[in-house]
Every structure is written in structure tokens, then in C-alpha cells.
Design a binder for these strands. Structure first.
Length: 315
RNA sequence: GCCGCUUUAGCUCAGUUGGUAGAGCAACGGACUGAAAAUCCGUGUGUCCCCAGUUCAAGUCUGGGAGGCGGCA
């Protein structure tokens, strides 16, 4: 089975720079696996690759989708699979770089093969949740699908919504869909996670926030708000964009805004590492503040190249 | 210098008639099957400013001291 290099890690771990070096060494192009960089015009605050970086290696699946039409893991996985195959047909291997754990799972393991989302039903459900509370919907889920209800917390609205939605639109329980398995991809991931000390991550996040603010993030948000993306920013909870929008409404000082951004970013980094820590088959690359990008990339290649060449011997 | 208020978790603060403390945020750990930068679950991490006194028992009452804030000088 063909294998694909996947460089993962938390926000601010240095994935982007390392990914470029690795892609150059492998003669590959980069597929961004990032649930926020994919949105058009959300550039500075989502740390999209810069023009200089894109000049070194072409990046795909960034800056292409209108945020007023939210992306889903399933749709993204389809796009990613198509792009990987398309690149390969033109003789280009792909390196996947990004920190969105579920998106990797959707690409490689596949999601269960059930119905897509139903926006109208979701709207109705949301109204009901506001009226009678989320646990009431959980009770309802217990009636239709006790197996799934058991696995979902009574307050976990998003999962309850999905489970009820699946039952509503397909007439089949989510737990039954799960029984049928998933549509696995024909490629297999080689996951490599960049891991830094917590204090290093905290420092780098603060540094990164300061740089983004200096480089025009606030103007970017102002323009997005003027272009009518305010609702999308709130709904999708874009880190920093919400805080800056609050700042522009004079609800936060600049210092408070920066601190809030650092906090939500740190919390996210923590959740990302919890996910990757429990990802099967993960290869770890421990990184210290002194390591150069090139050195880190070399270590990634040391892990990845033997696996890639073992594959070519057998295929 | 005098008067008043104040000092409890990393931060902001609750704490009944005395029975060795708790909430929000932060932090830490976890889950994650089409919103994933989402969503949810779990954990208290403490010389209750210090010293002495009263009391079976003091965060709580009394006296003294120290820090902070405000007012009058």
C-alpha cells in the first residue's frame, strides 16, 4: 500500500517550515490539513503559508473556500483524496502538513458511510435545544439509539445533534452505520508529530500572536467584518478573529485581546496534543528551542525515508 | 502623622450564629466517526498576611505588627 508522509503537531510547533524542507527533499507538494487555513481571506490569523513559502513548494487546500459556507470533515476528505491522486498522476508525491486530527482520520480511516449534514433539521434541533435544554435531546437519543447515547455526554450538543440527524435523515441508527465500517483510503499515513516542551510551545504561541498582530491581523479582521464574515467568525469560533472583533467593538483592550488570543491558542494546542498522543502508529520527533528547521526536517526524513523505500521494494 | 476600607487558590472574589474553606476564570488530565481552531467530561493546586490572646475549637472574636487602596493633614 502506498504511504503518505503526514507532519503533525500543535499550533506553533513549526510544522509549516519543517514541512517545506521535507517536501523539498522528497520532491513533493504540500497538502494543508488545516480546518481554518482552508478558508479564503483568513490569512494572517490562521498562519497560512506566505507567498515566499508557496514559492518554495506549492501548497494545496489553503485559502480556497468561502467561510460563509462551512466546510465539513467529510467534504474536506473527498477534496484531499482527489487532490492527492491528481498530484500523483502528474508524478508528484504529496506531503500532508497540518494539525486537524479529525481531518486526517476522515481522509485515511474514512468516516462512517452515512448521510451528509442536513442544515434545516439542524436549525430545528437548535431551537429545541434552546427551549428544552440539551440533556432533553440526549434523553431522546437514548430512546432511538441507546448504544450511541451511552457514548455521548448529556451536554455534548454537537454529537447529540449529529446522532439524531443521522437517524432523522436516514431512518437508521448511527450505531448501525458504524457497524458497516468506513471507506478507507487506498493510501496509508506515516504520522510524524513534532513535540516541544510545554513552556516552549507557550513561548512560541505568544511570539507568534505578537507577530501576527504586528503584521496586520487587525486590518484583516476589519476587512472580513466589512465583507460580512462576522457571523462566520462567531459560528466557527476562529481563534483570535473573535477576540479582535470584540476589540474592534471596544469590548477589550489591545493587551486583553492579545492575552485572550494566547489563552485560546494554548488551550487548542493542548487538545491537539491529546489527540496526537493517542494516535496509533505515531512517530515522535522531540524538538528543542535550539533545533534548526533543517535539523528537524532531517530527523523527520530519517524516520520517513526507510518506510517509503521499503514500500517501493515490495510494490 | 491621623482616620477609614482591605489582605482567603495563579487571577478576581464568596465564606452564614466560631466547627481547619469554595465559585468563576486560568492551569492540568481525558474523550473525540461529516461544526474539530468545534464540542464535551474530570481534577483544587491553599502558612485563609504575620505574631500573640480568648475558646474544647479561630478564615471568622480581641490586641499588636506588616502590606495595599482611599481620605484628611
Amino acid at each position: 500500500m502506498k504511504k503518505l508522509v503526514c507532519i503533525v503537531g500543535s499550533t506553533g510547533s513549526g510544522k509549516t517550515a519543517v514541512g517545506i524542507d521535507v517536501a523539498l527533499a522528497l520532491g513533493a507538494e504540500i497538502l494543508s490539513i488545516d480546518s481554518r487555513q482552508l478558508y479564503r481571506d483568513f490569512i494572517i490569523g490562521t498562519a497560512q503559508p506566505t507567498a515566499a513559502e508557496q514559492a518554495q513548494v506549492p501548497h494545496h487546500l489553503t485559502n480556497f473556500h468561502d467561510a460563509r459556507e462551512p466546510m465539513t470533515a467529510g467534504t474536506f476528505a473527498k477534496l484531499a483524496r482527489d487532490k492527492i491522486k491528481e498530484l500523483l498522476q502528474s508524478g508528484k508525491p504529496t506531503v500532508l502538513v497540518g494539525g486537524s486530527g479529525l481531518y486526517y482520520r476522515a481522509i485515511f480511516d474514512g468516516l462512517f458511510q452515512g448521510p451528509p449534514i442536513d442544515p434545516e433539521y439542524r436549525e430545528k434541533l437548535r431551537d429545541r435545544a434552546e427551549q428544552s435544554g440539551v440533556p432533553a435531546l440526549h434523553l431522546e437519543l437514548q430512546q432511538v439509539d441507546p448504544v450511541i447515547a451511552e457514548k455521548i455526554q448529556p451536554n455534548d450538543y454537537i454529537r447529540i445533534e449529529r446522532a439524531l440527524e443521522v437517524f432523522h435523515t436516514s431512518g437508521k441508527r448511527l450505531s448501525d452505520w458504524w457497524q458497516n465500517g468506513t471507506d478507507r483510503f487506498e493510501f496509508e499515513p506515516i504520522y510524524v508529530c513534532l513535540r516541544r516542551e510545554r513552556s516552549d510551545v507557550v513561548r512560541r504561541i505568544a511570539q507568534r500572536t505578537a507577530i501576527m498582530l504586528r503584521e496586520g491581523w487587525i486590518d484583516e479582521v476589519r476587512q472580513l467584518l466589512e465583507a460580512g464574515y462576522g457571523d462566520a467568525i462567531e459560528r466557527e469560533k476562529f481563534h483570535g478573529y473573535r477576540e479582535i472583533a470584540a476589540y474592534l467593538r471596544n469590548e477589550l483592550s489591545l493587551a486583553e485581546t492579545e492575552e485572550r488570543i494566547n489563552i485560546v491558542t494554548r488551550q487548542y494546542a493542548k487538545r491537539q496534543m491529546t489527540w496526537f498522543r493517542h494516535t496509533e502508529g505515531m512517530h515522535w520527533v522531540d524538538v528543542t528551542p535550539d533545533d534548526s528547521t533543517n535539523k528537524i526536517a532531517q530527523r523527520v526524513l530519517q524516520i520517513v525515508q526507510p518506510i517509503l523505500s521499503a514500500k517501493s521494494l515490495t510494490s
